[in-house]
Write a protein that binds this DNA or RNA. Structure first.
Lengths: 351, 351
DNA sequence: TTTAGCACTCATATCTATAGTGTGCTAACG
DNA sequence: CGTTAGCACACTATAGATATGAGTGCTAAA
C-alpha cells in the first residue's frame, strides 16, 4: 500500500478506525463518537482508547469535531484518504447491472446514448448524472450533403460516425446548380471521409488559405460552407447532459438554498463544468473531486465522481455523478466505472 | 365594472382597501394589519374602521388571517378578484421593451425564438419563463428530401415553414435507387406542400389505408417513411422551453424544499405542464392561474401567467411565467402580454 | 357610520434549568 | 508502553417560564 505524508503518524489500526468511522458517518450523517466507534469497530477496545486514536486522526487532519461534545466527522483529507486507500468497492447488483445494460443499448446516436447514460447514472445513484457529449476530436466525418432549398438557401447535412446527423441552413450569396452542389459534396466526402472533425476543420482551413487560387469557385464555396457547419456544430445543444438534478434537493447536507441555487446555476451555465470535466479526460479510471478539491466554488459541498469513456481506444468524453460529499463511495465508484465501460462499448460497436 | 358573487357584500370602498392591502402584501410579504392599512390607504380613517372593512373582506373570503394577531393576507379568491378587477397594469419601461425586442429578433427558427422568448421572460420577471414550441398544427410542410446513406439507411429531411429542419435516419428493409427516392420526394412535396403537419399526417394515414393497392411500392414506402418522421417529430426535444427555474429558489414563499422539488420535477416531466398549457390555447389575451386554480398540485403555491401567441392569426402556442402566488401582477401581466405579441410578430414575418 | 378603549389571542424572543453526549486529562493497571 | 477507568468540563438540545408586541374583536360612545 502506498505511503502518504499523513500515515506516518497514522498506523494501520488508526486507518481501520478511520474507515469504520467514515462508513458509519456516511450511513448516519451524524458525528461519530468514541463509544459508538468502539462498539462498531468490533475490536474489543474501550472508548477511552478509541479517543486516543481519534485524537491522532484529528491531529493528522483526517477528522474533525463540529464542537466540543459532538463526535467526529471526516475532513476532505479524510475522505481523500478513504477513497484512495480504504474503500471496499461494492460491485453492482445483478438487477442494477441489467438495468444499466438495457438503458445503454446500442442503436442510438452519441447524444442519445449520452442522455441515457446520464439517466442511468442518476437513477442508480439517486444523485445527479452528468455525461459529456462525445467530443468532436473522436467523431469521424462520414458524409456531407448539400440540398438546395427555395431561394438561395442551402441545407447542409453532416453525417458523422457516431450516427448523428447535424444540419444547418445556410444563406449563400451565389446560386448553385444542383450539379455544382453534387460536385462539391463529392469532393468533400472523398477528401475528408473518415477523418475526425477536428482535423477536417484544420484541413479545410489550410486548404482555404493556401490553394484558394487554384480551385474553382464552387470548391471554395463548398469548403467555406463545410467550415461554417463545423464552426456551429459544437453549440448544437450544449456539451453535456444532466439528469436528476432534483435528486440533489433531497439531501439534508445540501439543504442550504443559496448554495443549492449556486450549484443549479452552475449546471445551467455549463462552461465551468465543462472546464472541470476536461481535466478528467486524461486520467485513467475513476477520478474523484471531494469538496473544494474541484476548485470550483459551487461544488464546495459536493463530490464529483468521474470516469472517461472512449471509442476504440481514444478518450471520447467524460461522465460522472455529482452528489453531497457524504455519499456512498463504495457503491458510487463502481457505478460510474461500469457506466463508462458500457458507454464505451455501446459507442464502439456502431463505429 | 362587472359584478361577481362576492362584491354584493363588498362595496367599492372595501374593494379599494383590498387593492391597497394586496399591493402592500405583494411588496412586503408580511401580513398587513389595520394600522398599516389605515396609514397606507391615504384615506383618513382610523384602524378600527379599517378593521370593520377587513372583517367584511374576510367574510367574503378575499383575505384571511394566518393567526389571531397577525395582519391579513390575500386568499386565492382575493388574488383572483384583484387580477380581474383591481390591477393597475404597469407598462414596460423603455429599456425593458428594447431588451425584449432585441432578444426576440426575427431570423431564427421557431425553436430558437421560443428559447429566446423564454430567457427574456425569466430575465424581466426574475421568475421562470416558459414557452411552448410552436405546435405542429400551425407549422406548414414545405419540403421533404430523402438522402441515401451507406447501407440501407436513408436520411429523411423535413423542412417546415418556421424555418426548422428536422431529420431522421431510417433503416429501410428495401433498397431504393436514387431516382426512386427523388420520385418519392417529389410526390410528397407536390401533394402536401403548404399543408400543416397535422393534416399532412392525417392525409398520409388515409392514403395508406385507402389507396394502397393502387400505388406502386415506392410511393407506399415514401408515405410510410414520411409518416415515421412525423410520428417522431414531436418528441424531438420536448415541447416547451424553460428558463430561469433557479430564480424560483430565491423566493421565500417557495422555500419549502419538498414543494420546490415537486415543482422542479414537474418541469422535468413536462407532460402535465403541457396539458396545462394546452388549456390556455383557446383563450384571448393573458390568462392567470392562481395557486390551486391550476388544479395541478405542484403549482399549489405558484401562479402561472400565460398568453397565447400566433402565426398569422392562428394560435401557435402558449408562453408564460411561473412564480410565487405573491408576485407583482401589475408588472408581470404586461410583460407576458408583450412577449406573446412580439413572438407572434417575429413568427409572422418569416412565414 | 366612525371611533376610542379595552380585553384577549397568539407568535416571537429571551432566559433559565436540565439532561445528554462526548471530550480531554490523569492516574492506575497489566 | 499500551490500555483502561474515572472525572471534570464543554457544549448542544430541549423544555418551561416569562415577557413583549402586534393585531384583533367587541362594546359603547360620539
Amino acid at each position: 500500500m502506498a505511503n502518504t505524508s499523513v500515515d506516518v503518524a497514522v498506523n494501520e489500526r488508526a486507518q481501520y478506525f478511520l474507515k469504520v468511522l467514515i462508513e458509519h458517518y456516511i450511513r448516519d450523517g451524524q458525528p461519530v463518537g468514541s463509544r459508538t466507534l468502539a462498539r462498531d469497530s468490533g475490536m474489543n477496545l474501550s472508548p477511552a482508547t478509541i479517543r486516543n486514536v481519534m485524537s491522532d486522526l484529528e491531529e493528522a487532519g483526517l477528522i474533525t469535531s463540529p464542537h466540543t461534545s459532538a463526535g467526529r466527522v471526516p475532513t476532505v483529507s479524510g475522505y481523500r484518504f478513504f477513497v484512495d486507500f480504504l474503500v471496499s468497492l461494492r460491485p453492482l447488483e445483478k438487477s442494477e447491472m441489467q438495468q444499466m445494460r438495457q438503458q445503454i443499448a446500442v442503436g442510438a446516436d452519441g447524444k442519445a446514448l449520452a442522455a441515457r447514460a446520464s439517466v442511468a447514472l442518476s437513477d442508480l445513484t439517486h444523485m445527479a448524472g452528468l455525461v459529456m457529449i462525445p467530443r468532436r476530436e473522436q467523431i469521424l466525418f462520414r458524409q456531407i450533403e448539400f440540398v438546395p432549398l427555395s431561394g438561395s438557401r442551402i441545407l447542409v447535412i453532416l453525417v458523422t460516425s457516431d450516427g448523428e446527423v447535424q444540419n444547418r441552413v445556410i444563406e449563400s450569396a451565389k446560386r448553385f446548380t444542383e450539379s455544382q452542389l453534387t460536385q462539391a459534396q463529392n469532393f468533400l466526402t472523398l477528401n475528408y471521409g473518415g477523418q475526425d472533425l477536428e482535423s477536417m476543420r484544420a484541413g479545410l482551413l489550410k486548404e482555404m488559405q493556401s490553394t484558394r487560387k487554384q480551385m474553382d469557385e464552387v470548391m471554395t464555396q463548398a469548403i467555406e460552407l463545410a467550415g461554417l457547419v463545423l464552426d456551429n456544430s459544437d453549440d448544437s445543444d450544449g456539451d453535456f447532459v444532466l439528469s436528476g438534478q432534483t435528486n440533489l434537493m433531497g439531501f439534508h447536507d445540501l439543504s442550504d438554498m443559496t448554495m443549492l441555487k449556486h450549484l443549479f446555476d452552475s449546471f445551467a451555465e455549463k462552461r465551468q463544468i465543462l472546464h472541470l470535466l476536461d481535466h478528467c479526460m486524461d486520467a485513467e479510471g475513476v477520478q474523484i473531486f471531494i469538496g473544494e478539491e474541484s476548485d470550483y466554488e459551487p461544488f464546495d459541498n459536493c463530490t464529483l465522481v468521474t470516469a472517461a469513456y472512449e471509442t476504440d481506444g481514444n478518450v471520447a468524453g467524460v461522465l460522472g455523478v455529482v452528489g453531497p460529499t457524504r455519499m456512498d463511495y463504495n457503491k458510487v465508484i463502481p457505478i460510474v466505472d461500469v457506466t463508462a465501460k458500457l458507454l464505451s462499448m455501446a459507442l464502439k460497436t456502431q463505429k
